[in-house]
């Protein structure tokens, strides 16, 4: 049995079991909205909210949900949080909502969120589930920001829309187009492999 409050559930998601680089999960939004840092940050924030919210809720209701219907229940819980984010963002941050587009509602089938609900929140107490959600969410956000920096900086010469490379810099446009996303993540995973941990599964 785990401790009542286990800080490890928070820190694991950040690097050691980073949902993206370690588990190879939730790739779609990671590649699709990483062309600019602003979009990536928005996606990361939405992701942390949904993951933490879903984890807490699943942890609260875990005792009353019979095992055979747990997956539909988890899906409803996640869909609820995703819709909340979707509408709040449309109301308060319309430009961000427009640029995230269909990838925002698609969080509902993101394997990280359903995976954490099933693998962690349905077996742990509320505090640890919340910490796990925060940690995994932050891990995802860090990953998407890392990819976004590597795409926006060479691709447009900017960071968060602010020009850092001089005017004479010719942008390497391929980086902000779809192929750039695949190349960056390929090289990042190779980098992580070279740092010693070779564990890939989907």
């Amino acid at each position: 049995m785990k401790k009542l409050i286990d800080l490890k559930s928070f820190s694991l998601g950040l690097w050691k079991e980073n949902p993206v680089f370690y588990l190879m999960l939730g790739l779609c939004p990671l590649l699709a909205v990483s062309a600019s840092l602003k979009d990536a940050l928005g996606m990361g924030a939405a992701f942390i909210f949904v993951l933490t919210g879903a984890n807490i809720t699943v942890s609260i209701i875990r005792r009353w949900v019979p095992a055979h219907i747990r997956i539909p229940v988890f899906i409803i819980v996640i869909a609820t949080f995703v819709t909340i984010v979707d509408y709040s963002m449309a109301a308060f941050l319309p430009p961000l909502h427009r640029s995230l587009g269909v990838y925002l509602p698609l969080m509902v089938v993101n394997c990280i969120i359903l995976g954490r609900a099933e693998a962690f929140a349905s077996k742990n107490n509320i505090v640890n589930s919340a910490l796990d959600g925060l940690g995994m969410g932050l891990g995802f956000t860090l990953a998407i920001l890392a990819i976004a920096v590597l795409r926006e900086l060479p691709g447009q010469g900017t960071v968060f829309g602010i020009r850092v490379l001089g005017k004479s810099y010719t942008p390497f446009l391929i980086m902000i187009m779809p192929p750039g996303a695949f190349l960056v993540i390929g090289f990042l995973i190779a980098l992580k492999n070279s740092m010693g941990r070779r564990k890939n599964k989907c």
Partner: peptide
């Protein structure tokens, strides 16, 4: 199973209709 699913769906539906009602005017205004 049916009862639990029903309760969860209804809670979710009520929550979402509240969120929708609260954000709709602002979305239109934006």
């Amino acid at each position: 199973g049916i009862i639990v699913l029903l309760i969860i769906s209804m809670t979710s539906g009520c929550l979402l209709s509240w969120v929708y009602g609260a954000t709709k005017p602002r979305i239109d205004e934006q």
